[in-house]
Computed example of a mutant assay.
Amino acid sequence: MKIIAAQMDWQSLAEKALHGECLSLEEGLAVLEADNDEVLLLMQAAFKVRNHFYGKKVKLNMIINAKSGLCPEDCGYCSQSIVSTAPVQKYTLLDKDTLLAGAREALARKAGTYCIVAAGKGPTDKELSQVVDAVKEIRQTMPLKICACLGILNDDQAKRLAEAGVHRYNHNLNTSKANYPAITSTHSYDQRVETVEKVKTHGMSPCSGVIIGMGETNQEIIEMAYALRELDSDSIPINFLNAIPGTPLVHAGRTPSMKALKVLALFRFICPSKEIRVAGGREVNLRTLQPLSLFAANSLFVGDYLTTAGQEISADYQMIEDLGFEIELNAL
């Protein structure tokens, strides 16, 4: 496969993506296995696609950990899972005033999307009502798009969230179908796919992404991108594992920075028109190469993640400015 990578014309992959054609498995492997000397040329090709659909705009998202450390699931990457011994805060779903304060903070950070995330297999009726009440008031008083991430939903729950005004629902595939049993046993890959399809039927925009660095092969990374293309996910967060002490995946190595850039380019080629977000773990895995990520990605989180710290917000603003890019503000 190295021979294919050495002979690959990266601009031809950009043209293929712009014409709506999907990369072959062999082309995808060529991207992921490219020599590091090819990375700048690869990112230039990815930027051609990104620029066509998004110009130099960068979408900002802010996340609030609306319920922490009480999850009964056994996801190996998560510090909030039942099998984790990480010293994280534990609290039930935040009240409406706290969720509203988070929305105001999102606006102050120039975020266009406010992400309400609650750990757990799925919301109780009481929890859903709390989120619905907060969402309704946010929609009435603030120019924010709202993304909810509450776990697996039934039809009635999806309907209530959509009617309340939730724009987008996040439910990540996380890894490949083949690798999924190695990551969690308390729910299935298919259940995640079903939830994404369910939110689509109720008119919410689907947000679904992956976590890179959990033992998957390069072929499985490509299969993840194919799966998200098939799901027609509008927003694709690309997380890079931040191995947290106390979690089963604590000993997983970080994704090399150059490999992380190749992954972002791959997803841009396979899902060319979608919002690609460089998400959790970018600071730990991309390190000083974070600015290059925005030549493929067009979105990022500002501030902290669920249980880990993010880069200083001022550093994100500076990075965007230094690239000659600009923050995309909502026009609701």
Results as ranks from 00 to 15, higher is better:
residue 3 I to R: 02
residue 8 M to C: 12
residue 17 A to M: 02
residue 20 G to H: 01
residue 24 S to Y: 01
residue 25 L to D: 13
residue 27 E to N: 07
residue 37 D to P: 03
residue 39 V to E: 08
residue 41 L to T: 15
residue 41 L to Q: 14
residue 43 M to G: 11
residue 58 V to Q: 03
residue 61 N to Y: 07
residue 61 N to R: 02
residue 62 M to E: 03
residue 63 I to L: 13
residue 66 A to I: 10
residue 76 G to V: 11
residue 78 C to S: 11
residue 78 C to T: 12
residue 81 S to R: 08
residue 82 I to V: 14
residue 92 T to S: 12
residue 93 L to E: 09
residue 97 D to F: 00
residue 98 T to V: 12
residue 99 L to F: 00
residue 101 A to M: 01
residue 106 A to I: 04
residue 125 D to M: 01
residue 132 V to L: 02
residue 134 A to V: 10
residue 136 K to F: 08
residue 137 E to I: 14
residue 138 I to V: 14
residue 138 I to G: 09
residue 139 R to E: 09
residue 140 Q to E: 12
residue 144 L to F: 13
residue 147 C to D: 05
residue 148 A to Q: 05
residue 151 G to S: 07
residue 151 G to C: 11
residue 151 G to K: 12
residue 168 R to H: 03
residue 172 N to W: 04
residue 187 H to Y: 15
residue 194 E to S: 10
residue 199 V to G: 15
residue 201 T to S: 15
residue 204 M to H: 14
residue 205 S to V: 14
residue 206 P to H: 03
residue 206 P to D: 05
residue 207 C to W: 13
residue 212 I to V: 14
residue 213 G to K: 02
residue 214 M to G: 07
residue 216 E to F: 05
residue 219 Q to G: 10
residue 227 A to E: 07
residue 229 R to L: 04
residue 230 E to M: 01
residue 231 L to C: 07
residue 232 D to A: 04
residue 233 S to N: 07
residue 241 L to M: 04
residue 242 N to K: 06
residue 246 G to C: 12
residue 252 A to S: 11
residue 254 R to I: 14
residue 257 S to L: 02
residue 260 A to D: 03
residue 264 L to T: 08
residue 270 I to G: 00
residue 273 S to L: 00
residue 273 S to N: 03
residue 274 K to A: 02
residue 280 G to Q: 04
residue 281 G to N: 08
residue 282 R to D: 08
residue 284 V to P: 06
residue 293 S to C: 05
residue 294 L to S: 05
residue 300 L to I: 13
residue 305 Y to T: 07
residue 306 L to N: 15
residue 308 T to Q: 06
residue 312 E to M: 09
residue 313 I to Y: 09
residue 315 A to F: 04
residue 319 M to T: 10
residue 322 D to N: 11
residue 328 E to P: 04
residue 331 A to K: 12
residue 332 L to N: 13
residue 332 L to A: 11
